[in-house]
Design a binder for these strands. Structure first.
Lengths: 221, 221
DNA sequence: TTGCGGACTTACTAAGTAGTTAGTAAGCTA
DNA sequence: TAGCTTACTAACTACTTAGTAAGTCCGCAA
């Protein structure tokens, strides 16, 4: 639901949608709003109108569920990034699209799944930890490519290492999400995201499109 | 422990330190590393070498404990900010000292208490929620004063509203803390914090002290 | 010395936690 | 139609959770 518009997995048994996916959908929302320790099997089972025990049929343990959850989230997230890369765009537009992934979550009252898991990192089983770190690493790698592109095409300007800038984008957006949620205020996120991204956009006569693009992107929520 | 060096509250009964404070100290560390839902009375009791039930003597409910915890944290935090204001400094040095409060927590492997609580905001009892929001509001108010000072004295330069900039500093630092923790890497926080703050420091011939100050501050961890 | 109150402990409860077990009903396949 | 798989349920275990109630210990003041 949050990242891509959900590919509506067609059931083999005609009437009902794959139960494992529905479990993950419900768990995803619960993790993004309450954290991994903030819900129980009973919460998922109640929404599915099923016994808690039956969840163990699909996912042996809560850790297994969590691992599957982060993996699916990570893969969907990068599918969305590939979608951004699909048609040729300038770097500022890509960053703007990147930020929109975050604000889309916030609009549903959700934190980024991996941002939420980062908060409770110490309480996570090892396999989940690895998935979370991998999520951030791959985000960084994608951003580094966009930043390099922007530098080459002259649309972005920044000092310091590309990795450091990529990291500051990730942490800036995650932090903006974290703080905006208690206020229930998407505008608060938008404002911080716009500041962050426009500080990278190269100021020039022709930059109205680029900087303006970032503003446009984040002001449509 | 995290913010100010703890005023070692002298006991009335000579030998032992006030138990309520010790409970809060232990709870504070647990919340900052695991979240409010990530520990139980048993965890605190074990560290205090006391029965879980006896905690109820000092704090009627877990919510009461949490409320007292955030209130104490908030008050200590602002005592630290007043300490920064005490001797006259230029705005960049104040921002640098502000960032150091965050990195001090990270050095102990801790998240900002209110950042952690912001993640689990939906799971908090109402009185705790109010304390958390108040923490961020008062942070913003302090930062606004520093930003105004910097603008007047010519050490800071930024576009847009002062509140928006203050908010982006808070969320930038909270986010940097959030992401740095899974990596166990203070340098990662430092790098993001330095980028964030130096982007506000006015570039000039005499700015070596200011910008350099921010760099110095965050490179001593 | 007696009594009082602060700071507990012992012993409990009710509810919730993940997870296990054996069994069932429906459908698919050979 | 026999044997298998899928997707469960009912009933449990073992444990943890916050919270309660009643009683104990101990220093201190009258």
């Amino acid at each position: 639901m949050p990242i891509s518009p959900e590919p509506t997995p067609v059931s083999k048994r005609a009437e009902q949608i794959d139960t494992a996916s529905r479990i993950l959908d419900i768990a995803e929302e619960l993790v993004q709003t309450r954290g991994f320790g903030g819900f129980s099997y009973a919460d998922i089972a109640a929404q599915l109108d099923v016994t808690p025990a039956s969840l163990h049929y699909h996912f042996g343990s809560k850790g297994d569920l969590g691992e599957a959850l982060v993996r699916r989230y990570r893969m969907r997230f990068f599918a969305a990034l590939e979608e951004i890369d699909r048609r040729p765009r300038q770097a500022p537009a890509k960053l703007e699209a990147y930020a929109r992934i975050y604000s889309d979550a916030l609009r549903l009252g959700r934190m980024c799944l991996c941002g939420m898991l980062a908060a409770g990192y110490e309480t996570l089983p090892e396999p989940m930890r690895q998935e979370v770190v991998r999520f951030f690493d791959e985000n960084e790698a994608w951003l580094v490519r966009v930043l390099d592109q922007g530098r080459k095409e002259g649309t972005l300007a920044f000092t310091g290492g590309t990795s450091a800038v990529a990291q500051s984008i990730i942490s800036g957006l995650e932090g903006a999400l974290l703080i905006a949620r208690p206020y229930g205020d998407v505008g608060r996120f938008r404002s911080a995201a716009t500041r962050l991204l426009t500080s990278l956009v190269r100021a020039s006569r022709t930059s109205a499109g680029a900087a303006g693009g970032a503003r446009t992107a984040s002001s449509r929520g």
